[in-house]
């Protein structure tokens, strides 16, 4: 163990923690919104969109994250560039930071997994709840926002916590498309003097700490939302 290396490298690796968290938060926010839309589309069997969503979800769940990252990293610049040409702008592809491609791949992955969670949560809320909301004169949007979503969220939150921790762990793969998050930074620092064991023990502890805090946070959310759960599921 090279303690001098640990003292020197730890602050540098810690500086990469916000990048990992930023990537996770943006991907989760975008992914879960898309996931909720997919869940609603599939629940109401919207023609064309519903079939398209089913194929999308199946693809995302079947392909490993690292391949999705590579596809996004190599395909999006081409798409972006030809789109730019078609509207008459010459987009400088090299100016786009790789974190954008990573976030897009991670968001789509989250969308697929969260859509399944939202779908089962929505169907777990009793049908009678919707009818009761209508009977007191609520519109469809009101009923969804005030009655259905809070209950569905209470059911979905433990699973959402699970995929969010998975997402944070998944960001370590963004290393392969050149994002300098925790893993890439640790690798870079370990290379010159081959301090692998020290670097990866630090990285492990950092990820363990993040997972621990996130699990606690989601547990708190779960407790807070419990009031929406009492006897609500069918």
């Amino acid at each position: 163990m090279d303690f001098k290396f640990i003292i020197e490298a730890l602050p540098k690796i810690m500086l990469a923690v916000p990048i990992t968290l930023f990537m996770s938060l943006v991907s989760a926010a975008a992914g879960w919104l898309l996931g909720l839309s997919i869940a609603l589309i599939r629940k109401h069997r919207v023609p064309v969109l519903s079939q398209f969503s089913a194929v999308f979800v199946s693809f995302m769940r079947g392909v490993p994250m690292v391949i999705l990252l590579y596809i996004s990293y190599y395909a999006l610049p081409i798409l972006l560039y030809s789109y730019g040409l078609s509207i008459g702008i010459n987009i400088d592809i090299n100016a786009v930071p790789p974190i954008v491609y990573a976030i897009i791949a991670l968001s789509l992955d989250q969308a697929a997994y969260s859509s399944e969670i939202f779908r089962s949560a929505l169907s777990a809320v009793d049908e009678g709840q919707m009818e009761a909301a209508f009977s007191v004169g609520m519109t469809r949007t009101q009923a969804l926002m005030r009655i259905i979503f809070p209950q569905a969220l209470a059911i979905a939150i433990p699973n959402l916590g699970g995929i969010f921790v998975g997402l944070v762990k998944g960001t370590s793969l963004a290393y392969y498309v050149g994002v300098y998050e925790i893993t890439a930074t640790a690798n870079l620092l370990a290379m010159p003097a081959l301090n692998f064991i020290e670097a990866y023990i630090m990285t492990t502890l950092i990820y363990e700490a993040i997972s621990f805090v996130l699990n606690k946070l989601f547990r708190i959310c779960e407790d807070r939302l419990k009031k929406f759960r009492a006897g609500a599921s069918a």
């Binding site: 921790v165 893993t183 064991i197 990285t203």
Partner: peptide, 23 residues
């Protein structure tokens, strides 16, 4: 269980493949 669920598989691979032989 908590430890294994908290560590990214990639880090575990690096830790064992690069770190363990050193140790």
């Amino acid at each position: 269980i908590a430890f294994m669920r908290g560590i990214p598989t990639l880090i575990l691979i690096f830790l064992i493949y690069l770190g363990l032989p050193q140790l």
